[in-house]
Simulated assay, not measured.
Amino acid sequence: MLKELKEAYGFIFEEELIREISESGTLKSVREGEVILDINDYITAMPLLLEGAIKILREDNEGNELLLYFLERGDTCALTLSCCLGQTRSEIRAVAEKDTVIIMIPIGKIEDWTAKYKTWRNFVFESYQSRLSEMLQTIDTIAFMHMDQRLLRYLQDKAKINQSEELQVTHQQIAYDLNTSRVVISRILKKLEMDKKIILQRNQIKVLDL
């Protein structure tokens, strides 16, 4: 675990803090599609990503989901952190975008390290700022972008997160993430293919416009 921590966070944290994280944290591996944290779960620990990617979703009263943002290696979830510090239930759902390895940090250590390590404080504040910026971008796409623009941006972000221009994703899954219908997604995907932005293949989408 210590080696993986140094590779993912060595440029952020000092040696002593990385050692404490290694000693206090719990390593967890999750498979693609697995729910790591669900809405209304009590949060007892904060995740640090060592490998893979996680998508963060919100859900309305009718069970419709909306993608807020992705987390990558070297990230944490500021919304989870906020719930940890406030000792409240989760308001988001965290799902593994691909096979992922995380280290879970106990609540007590979060406050201790905030007082003890400047690098940890900076990391926490920067995480809040980054996630807030991403949520504002999500709001902008919903408020100001047409669905074809939202869909193309979603595919581009997903390709970058997965480090592959070929995406294994169904039309229905995209519809869930963007909170729309499969019929609408299929129609717009066809249009994007005609515009040479993507190539539709069997159970796969190749993103050309990255």
Rank of each mutant, 00 (worst) to 15 (best):
I205G: 03
G86P: 00
I139L: 09
E51L: 11
I43N: 02
L50G: 03
L192Q: 04
R31T: 11
L57D: 08
L192K: 05
I107Y: 07
Y9C: 01
E4C: 06
E126S: 13
C83N: 14
L37G: 05
F123V: 05
N64W: 13
V124I: 15
C77W: 11
F123I: 10
G108N: 07
S130H: 12
P47Y: 10
L200Q: 12
D195P: 01
P47E: 08
N203C: 11
F11V: 12
E15G: 01
Q204L: 12
Q163K: 10
S82Q: 09
D209L: 02
I36H: 00
S82M: 12
R150Q: 10
E166C: 14
I18S: 02
L136R: 07
E62Q: 15
E16V: 10
D38F: 00
I107C: 11
D157W: 07
N40M: 03
M194W: 13
H171M: 07
L81E: 07
D209P: 00
D75C: 10
A94Y: 05
S127K: 04
S164Q: 09
I43S: 03
A175F: 08
I198C: 05
M147W: 07
N162E: 14
E51A: 14
A45R: 15
A96Q: 10
E32Y: 08
L167A: 11
V169M: 06
L208T: 07
R202H: 11
R121A: 15
I107R: 13
E51R: 13
E51P: 04
I36Y: 04
S181Q: 07
E111P: 00
E91V: 15
I161P: 04
S82V: 08
E59A: 02
I142W: 05
K160G: 05
Q173F: 15
Q149H: 12
I21C: 07
E16T: 11
D112S: 15
M1S: 14
I110K: 01
S127W: 06
L71D: 02
I185G: 01
E126T: 14
I43F: 03
